[in-house]
């Protein structure tokens, strides 16, 4: 019995002549017929097994990529706005550098590596502006299949929740604290912030970068706090890290 002949028969690779010959052989050889049926069953079992795997809903990702955003007067005037923001941003950055130089921890710190910039890893799926962190977390949960914490920062005086966002593989919470904007990004992965300067506070290890501070929760998530200045970031991260391990 030729196994390749059976395979070619089932995969429709035989010529018409070869097929007729094989079918004649099949009709007179019960063992061959049984073997063909068994390989056919084997093939369909592989297919059935592969189809049992759960496929996530990828439609929002496709829609996000495929639907071009409408061009409005806002977009047309974007270059002017960008220039304005750039001037403002340079001022803020200078202010931040001066501020951060007073922090000896950051003297040797690296900048946040590209792999830890979770916001860039997949396009935005949901943005929600609001002041209720519970509602914000709920909005993310509607789009994000994993468990996520509610990080209210209600115990950090002066911190106000401002927005929630998520992509298909990342989440973020946004706050205003001491007139500065901060964002906490989370993603289900490990290892991307290892290059940061390590230091511990309580039971938590933090990874400091010049422009961010990160930490791992007790499960499989990594969090990174960006924005504001170094002391504010660390404060926000300290309080947030108490909540990020609550869910596991």
């Amino acid at each position: 019995m030729n196994n390749n002949l059976i395979q070619d028969f089932l995969d429709n690779r035989l010529t018409a002549e070869e097929r007729i010959k094989f079918e004649a052989q099949l009709a007179n050889d019960p063992a061959l017929a049984q073997e063909v049926a068994a390989l056919n069953h084997f093939k369909s079992s592989i297919q059935k097994a592969a189809f049992t795997e759960v496929t996530p809903n990828l439609q929002p990702i496709l829609s996000d990529i495929a639907r071009p955003r409408p061009t409005s007067w806002l977009t047309k005037s974007a270059p002017i706005a960008v220039a304005g923001f750039a001037i403002f941003g340079i001022g803020m950055a200078v202010n931040r550098v001066v501020n951060d130089r007073t922090n000896p921890t950051l003297a040797n710190a690296k900048t946040l590596p590209a792999e830890a910039k979770f916001r860039t890893k997949s396009p935005l799926v949901m943005h929600w502006d609001g002041t209720d962190p519970i509602q914000g977390a709920e909005k993310i949960r509607n789009h994000f299949s994993r468990k996520i914490p509610t990080i209210a920062l209600s115990d950090l005086e002066g911190a106000n929740f401002t927005a929630a966002e998520c992509g298909s593989c990342w989440i973020s919470f946004h706050y205003q604290y001491q007139n500065q904007n901060y964002a906490i990004y989370g993603r289900c992965e490990k290892g991307s912030i290892d290059s940061g300067l390590q230091h511990s506070s309580g039971n938590q290890t933090f990874y400091e970068f010049q422009d961010a501070v990160g930490w791992y929760d007790s499960g499989d998530m990594t969090y990174v706090c960006t924005g504001g200045n170094s002391s504010g970031r660390f404060k926000v991260a300290q309080f947030a890290s108490k909540r990020t391990s609550d869910i596991h």
Partner: peptide
């Protein structure tokens, strides 16, 4: 090339 009898049939019930 496989020549023994019942090569694939032996898998029945194990999938």
């Amino acid at each position: 090339e496989v020549v023994q009898e019942g090569f694939w049939s032996e898998l029945d019930g194990k999938l």
